[in-house]
Amino acid sequence: MRFKTDLKNIRTFSKLAAALNSLEKIAWIRLDDDTVRFTVIPEVGSQVWASLSADLIFDNYQLQSNEPANTINLELPLAPLQRALRSAINSHNANLRLTKKDGAPMLSMVIHTMTKDSGGPNPAAPHSRPADDDDDNDPFNNPSPFPTEPLELQMKREREKIITQDIPVRVLHPDTVETIMQPKVREPDVHIQLPPLLQLKAISDRFTKLALTTASTSSSSHNNIVTKDPKLELSANMHGSLRLRLRTETLDITSVWDGLENPELDPSQLAMPLEEHPSTVFREAGRDKWATVRVDGKDWSRVLSVGRLEGRVIACFSDEHALILYVYVPHSSGGVGGGVGDGGCCYLLRLVF
Rank of each mutant, 00 (worst) to 15 (best):
F3M: 07
T5E: 05
D6R: 13
L7V: 01
I10V: 13
W49A: 09
D55G: 10
Y61C: 03
Q64M: 12
E67S: 11
E67W: 08
P68Q: 06
P68T: 01
T71E: 10
P77Y: 08
P77D: 11
Q82H: 11
S87P: 03
S91K: 03
T99M: 07
D102G: 07
L107P: 00
M109S: 02
P121R: 08
A124L: 15
D136K: 15
N137H: 15
D138M: 09
P139L: 09
P145Y: 00
P145G: 03
P145Q: 05
P150F: 07
Q154W: 13
R157C: 10
R159L: 14
Q165Y: 03
D166L: 02
D175H: 11
T179S: 12
K184P: 03
V185P: 01
L197T: 01
K201I: 07
A202P: 06
K209N: 13
L210G: 02
A215G: 00
S216L: 08
M238S: 14
G240R: 04
S241L: 10
R243L: 15
L251M: 10
S255H: 09
D258V: 08
P267Q: 10
P267V: 09
S268T: 12
A271D: 12
E276R: 13
E276V: 08
W290A: 02
V293E: 00
R294F: 04
L304E: 03
I314K: 01
S318E: 12
E320V: 12
H321P: 00
P330L: 01
G334V: 05
G343P: 06
L349C: 07
L351R: 02
